[in-house]
Amino acid sequence: METANLKEQIMERLENIIDPELGIDIVNLGLIYDVRLEKSGWVEIDLTLTTMGCPLADLITDQIYEELKGLSEVKKVDVKLVWSPAWTTERLSRYARIALGIR
């Protein structure tokens, strides 16, 4: 499978993961900073959270693993929790801004 196509499929799967506090998926919240793919099927995802110490880190990480294990091209997933740059509302998609009432 083409790398761009696989990355698109990964992002679509990540949109299934809803932040339980905000009710919006982690992609539209801007929590996914990067997705790197290796030909071996290894995927590394840089994830941030809206605040340090967020109690949902383990839940969201577990859901990422669960969503991506359904893709046959993905052999291994590593999720890296990153804090730089710090998340801000500027990372919200247009959809998330409307849903949260932010202009």
Rank of each mutant, 00 (worst) to 15 (best):
T61I: 12
R36V: 13
N28Q: 06
Q9S: 11
P20V: 03
W83Y: 15
S93T: 11
R13T: 08
I102M: 10
Y65A: 06
A99F: 07
L68R: 03
L92I: 09
V77P: 06
K7A: 09
C54R: 03
I26S: 00
Y95T: 12
E12V: 02
M52W: 12
R103D: 09
E90I: 00
G23R: 09
L31F: 04
G101D: 10
S72F: 11
I24N: 00
M1G: 15
L81V: 11
N16I: 03
S72P: 10
I24E: 01
G70V: 07
E73D: 13
D34M: 01
K75A: 09
L56Y: 09
R91F: 11
L56G: 01
A57N: 06
T89E: 13
I45F: 07
A57R: 00
V74A: 04
T61L: 01
G101W: 09
L14Q: 02
D78Q: 13
L56F: 08
R94V: 13
V82S: 01
A96N: 06
S40E: 13
E12Q: 15
N28V: 01
S84N: 14
N28T: 09
R94I: 12
M1H: 13
T61S: 06
D62Y: 10
T48E: 00
L37Q: 11
I102K: 12
N5V: 14
L49W: 05
D19Y: 04
T88E: 08
P55N: 00
G70K: 14
D46S: 13
K39V: 03
D58A: 11
T3V: 14
